[in-house]
Simulated assay, not measured.
Amino acid sequence: MNIDGEELIEQFYSRVEENMDNGMPYRDAIEMSAVTLGGPIPAKVSQAMAKYQEVIHPQSQLSQEENNDALALLSMGVLWDNTYFTPIEPDPSTPLENTLAESIYLIMKYGREEDGLNKALEANASNEGDVDVRAKAIRRVLGKA
C-alpha cells in the first residue's frame, strides 16, 4: 500500500480528532496518533515537540528572541532540508510533513493559553510558509480542545 504525503497527513489529523473525541487531551492525541500511524509522522511530531520545548524553556537562546516563532519555524526547516532558506511565499515543493511539524509546533505553543486557537492562528498568519495548510490543521486540533 503506497500512501502519499497528503493522505498520510489526513489520516494523522483524523486520528488526532478521533482520539480527542474519545476524551484524550490534544497533546496525547497528537503523540498517540503519530506513534500508531508511523512512517515519517513520528519524527516530524518529535521535531515539533523538541522545538516547542526549546522555545518555552526560559534559559534557551530561542526563548529570548523577539520573533521566536519565525526563528523556530526557520530552524526546523534548516534541520529538515540541511540548507538555509528565506521563504517568501508558500513553496509548493516544501514537503507537507514539514508543514505538519510547523502546525504541531504552533498548536503546542499556544494551545494551553486562554483563547489559544486565535493566538495560534494569529502567530501562524504572521509567519512565512503555507499559512492556509497550517491554519486548517490548527483549527482541526485546537477547535476541538
Score class of each variant (00 low, 15 high):
residue 85 F to L: 04
residue 60 S to Y: 10
residue 28 D to A: 10
residue 111 G to Y: 14
residue 69 D to E: 10
residue 122 E to G: 03
residue 58 P to F: 08
residue 114 E to K: 15
residue 69 D to V: 13
residue 10 E to T: 11
residue 28 D to C: 06
residue 83 T to C: 03
residue 58 P to M: 05
residue 3 I to P: 00
residue 142 L to W: 10
residue 65 E to P: 00
residue 43 A to H: 07
residue 93 S to Q: 05
residue 55 V to D: 10
residue 91 D to Q: 06
residue 37 L to S: 06
residue 1 M to L: 15
residue 48 A to H: 04
residue 24 M to V: 09
residue 38 G to R: 07
residue 94 T to Y: 12
residue 140 R to K: 12
residue 119 K to A: 09
residue 22 N to H: 12
residue 129 G to V: 06
residue 8 L to Y: 06
residue 137 A to G: 01
residue 102 E to V: 05
residue 24 M to Y: 04
residue 50 A to K: 11
residue 84 Y to G: 13
residue 15 R to L: 13
residue 84 Y to E: 13
residue 50 A to E: 13
residue 126 S to V: 01
residue 39 G to H: 13
residue 12 F to M: 02
residue 114 E to M: 15
residue 103 S to N: 07
residue 114 E to A: 15
residue 142 L to T: 10
residue 102 E to Y: 12
residue 103 S to G: 07
residue 10 E to Y: 11
residue 44 K to T: 02
residue 16 V to D: 03
residue 28 D to W: 00
residue 72 A to V: 04
residue 13 Y to H: 12
residue 133 V to H: 01
residue 40 P to T: 02
residue 71 L to P: 01
residue 38 G to Q: 07
residue 88 I to K: 11
residue 60 S to P: 08
residue 103 S to K: 02
residue 70 A to W: 06
residue 143 G to R: 05
residue 87 P to A: 03
residue 48 A to D: 03
residue 29 A to F: 08
residue 1 M to T: 08
residue 30 I to A: 05
residue 66 E to I: 10
residue 14 S to I: 00
residue 88 I to A: 12
residue 59 Q to E: 13
residue 87 P to S: 05
residue 115 D to Y: 07
residue 31 E to I: 01
residue 12 F to E: 02
residue 82 N to W: 00
residue 58 P to N: 03
residue 102 E to D: 08
residue 22 N to A: 14
residue 33 S to Q: 09
residue 54 E to A: 05
residue 65 E to T: 11
residue 32 M to V: 06
residue 76 M to H: 06
residue 137 A to P: 00
residue 29 A to W: 08
residue 67 N to H: 11
residue 36 T to Q: 14
residue 133 V to N: 06
residue 89 E to D: 08
residue 83 T to G: 04
residue 101 A to D: 01
residue 19 N to H: 15
residue 123 A to M: 07
residue 123 A to R: 02
residue 25 P to E: 12
residue 60 S to V: 00
residue 133 V to W: 01
residue 90 P to S: 14
residue 131 V to L: 07
residue 144 K to Y: 06
residue 77 G to L: 12
residue 131 V to E: 14
residue 41 I to V: 15
residue 29 A to I: 04
residue 55 V to E: 10
residue 92 P to S: 12
residue 139 R to H: 06
residue 72 A to G: 10
residue 16 V to F: 02
residue 84 Y to R: 11
residue 63 S to F: 02
residue 65 E to V: 09
residue 130 D to H: 07
residue 142 L to R: 08
residue 18 E to T: 14
residue 114 E to S: 15
